[in-house]
Amino acid sequence: MEIIQSFKENHLEVSIVGELDASSAIQMDEVMNEALEKKNFQIIIDCAGLDYISSAGLGVFVSYIEDIKSHEGNMVFYNLSDKVLNVFQILGLDQLVSIVPTQADAIQIIDG
């Protein structure tokens, strides 16, 4: 799995490429942990290259929801494939985070 980070003026853009499972979740966790330590609380996540996600991958995002909320931040996912979106929906994570179709939609949420 590859994680690409782009630091923009008012948000962090994270692109995930490959499979986010129990094996690679630690890599995702390190990126999220570092982002929040550096006070990046507006995060948009590009899932166009995300081929697969398991509960361990989703668990990383779930564990940062409260910290992001408490800093009035946002975690917005976009470009999800039907299969990845289905996993979010089975667990109900689509009710706790924002999921939008495009990058422009994600930025719109960040910009308020």
Binding site: A25, D29, L58, G59, V62, S63, I65, L96
Partner: peptide, 17 residues
């Protein structure tokens, strides 16, 4: 899931799936 988020837990969802 909401409880896991409040508790900042990373695991516990596998069996639910």
């Amino acid at each position: 899931l909401e409880r896991l988020a409040r508790e900042r837990k990373k695991g516990g969802m596998g069996l639910h799936l």
